[in-house]
Nucleic acid binder design. Sequence first.
RNA 1: GCGCUCGUAGCUCAACGGAUAGAGCAUUUGACUACGGAUCAAAAGGUUGCAGGUUCGAAUCCUGCCGAGCGCACCA
Length: 550
Amino acid sequence: MTPEELSQAVLSAVRASVEAGELAVAVPGQVTVERSKNRDHGDYATNVALQLAKPAGKPPREVAQVIAARLGAVEGVAKVDIAGPGFLNITLDAGSAGELARVIVGAGEVYGRGDALQGLKINLEFVSANPTGPIHIGGVRWAAVGDSLARILKAAGADVSTEYYINDAGVQIDKFGSSLRAAANGQPVPEDGYVGEYINDIARDIVAQVPGVLDKSEAEQKQVFTETGLRLMVAEIQRSMEEFGAHFDVWFSEKSLHDSGAVEKAIERLRAQGHVYDEGGAIWLRTTDFGDDKDRVLIKGDGETTYFASDAAYYLEKRDRGNEVCVYMLGADHHGYVGRLKAIVACAGDDPQHNIEVLIGQFVKMLRGGEEVRMSKRAGNIITIDDVVEWIGVDAARYSLARSSTDSTITLDIDVLTSATNENPVYYVQYAHTRMCGVKRKAAELGIVRGEFKPELLSTEWESNLLSMLGEFPRIVAKAAELREPHHVARYLEELAGVYHRFYDNCRIMPMGDDPATDLTYARMWLAEAAQIVVANGLNLLGVSAPERM
RNA sequence: GCGCUCGUAGCUCAACGGAUAGAGCAUUUGACUACGGAUCAAAAGGUUGCAGGUUCGAAUCCUGCCGAGCGCACCA
């Protein structure tokens, strides 16, 4: 019996109690059934009685008794206990619990997918770092979290498109171009320009790719260095992201919004909605109508459009492509944008509670020699995505960045990263997977083929623990998707790996010596394979490999 | 000054408003002539920043205070 089926059974028990007049309460839409943390509390627990106590006007334990009486009679349920303030602790009979292994093996890589977000078209924009330099450690966090989130949302049934917004318009691009030109000509870096080894590298590449560029006029040089530099830098970022396993369906150019006239069109649309006005020679959007601190300028007094105008046009463009929900993943230094972004949505006549979601993530702090490293391009101590991958590899990097909530700043110790220790919990999870594969290898070596499955043989505490843990997976995926929090999947995998390691230690799977394979051998092979499927599916959601050997 | 986010074991981090606040690392002590010991078992480690409030129940929600990070442009 899966937790989903059990949940339905509990719901039926509630409904039956209501219909029998034992409970005067509205039947809830659904009830949560969770795996018990403590083995003394059975396989699964539900707090439904606690939640129904108040509307029913009865003490929680009395409500629990009514439900328990009916639930105990359900096929597959061995025992129902009432505990504490009114929890229902449910123990399944071994056969019923063990059936889950068959379900999982049958489902294979589909196990864990659901329909919680079925039919929802979501656009997920993340990283979107300026193409004036390599992706640094902060951007890497969004690459790991964003790409994992995309995978999780898809697993929950959503129609997801991922997107990287290239800020290829504006003064920072001009500075980038002139910095490249200066480097190529051996001139000092211009005011507020970009420095670093990568600037010299790109400048050299441009000189090599465009023969005679240094003989051209200053204006022509600026154009060549800006355009070619931008192209090379974007290509570099794309390569880094590709190697990191972060996939973007769309690489969207800010400049294209201006070239296509989308910005002007957007302003007209907002004007038609009645939120645009002229003042002091500039054109404004009245974002204060929708909770923003102050109104925002769309077109400056000098006729130039603002970055904010691009944002508005970009949002409308995304919506025109049929995206129902536009998710933005921004760094903590951009949290001031949330208000104005939501105001854009409201000004456009959309619902800021639904059509846009802004996820704010905190910074990554780096430690070296026990002291915080303040990254500065000028000091040349930027830590890039390529550095991190070189030190610890894609798997460990993605995992360590995706296993924490983005609400909290995380601190990475460079000394630990570069020493390549086994401190990263990803190895704990991956090792569990290799052990599962090891069992298969051993079985092949002994010529054992998995025979008929007798689920009732999986009766020890380690086996039932593993089964109930495996049953949680679909619920975890749905939760991670709904909360937009990939770290729940990672935490689940760590717990699952622990449960598996303990099962492995206490429950010998393969026969010893020359002993023949028994029904118990087969049953445990089914269970081990089910566990392997879940770990592999979970790691895949995080973009981390599930190795057969380490 | 105003606003957003955060404050949990020595360190890095978990915990749909649920039961005795959990893992890993570090520390101490045990376990292989057996499927890979990158493992397992055990010990120790906490007034969840402080003070109130809400309720069957608060690390979680509300208020105030303390502390940290970040943001408050006709910049991008």
